[in-house]
């Protein structure tokens, strides 16, 4: 069994990663770190750079857990792509970061986190940036 975490190089993403590492230690399960970029643009701010990955590797190896990095791209729907990987790897827990947003903002922009919460068929841990 393993734990999956959606990683983006932002404070929310880092908070999610931290929580996922703690959980992975606790359950003694492998951690899958997923960063998925949207196709089409040449540059995407949610894509992890090699520097970001170095940082992640440092944090993970300090925690002393098993982990895998999965980089993927999606065409139109991040939620589907993320849940596809989660199902394929038969994970026991999904960890995602939540941004604080108003209802109006969520209506206009949509929310992948919300859709993952609603559509996932396994436990989801949602983390906020200022949780610590």
């Amino acid at each position: 069994m393993s734990i999956i975490v959606g990683y983006v190089p932002t404070p929310v993403g880092k908070a999610a990663l931290d929580a996922a590492i703690a959980e992975s230690k606790l359950r003694n399960e492998e951690l899958l770190i997923v960063n998925s970029s949207r196709e089409g643009a040449l540059v995407d701010k949610n894509t992890a750079s090699s520097d970001d990955w170095k940082e992640v590797e440092a944090v993970v190896s300090a925690a002393g857990i098993d982990s895998q990095i999965i980089e993927s791209t999606y065409r139109d729907d991040l939620t589907e792509e993320f849940l596809r990987i989660a199902t394929e790897r038969k994970v026991s827990l999904i960890v995602i970061g939540l941004r604080q947003r108003t209802q109006v903002g969520k209506f206009i922009m949509g929310s992948h986190a919300q859709r993952i919460l609603l559509q996932a068929d396994r436990p989801v841990l949602a983390v906020k940036a200022n949780a610590h």
Partner: peptide
Amino acid sequence: DRHRAVSAPI
């Protein structure tokens, strides 16, 4: 041909 690699911000 949209399946180009996506880069992190530079």
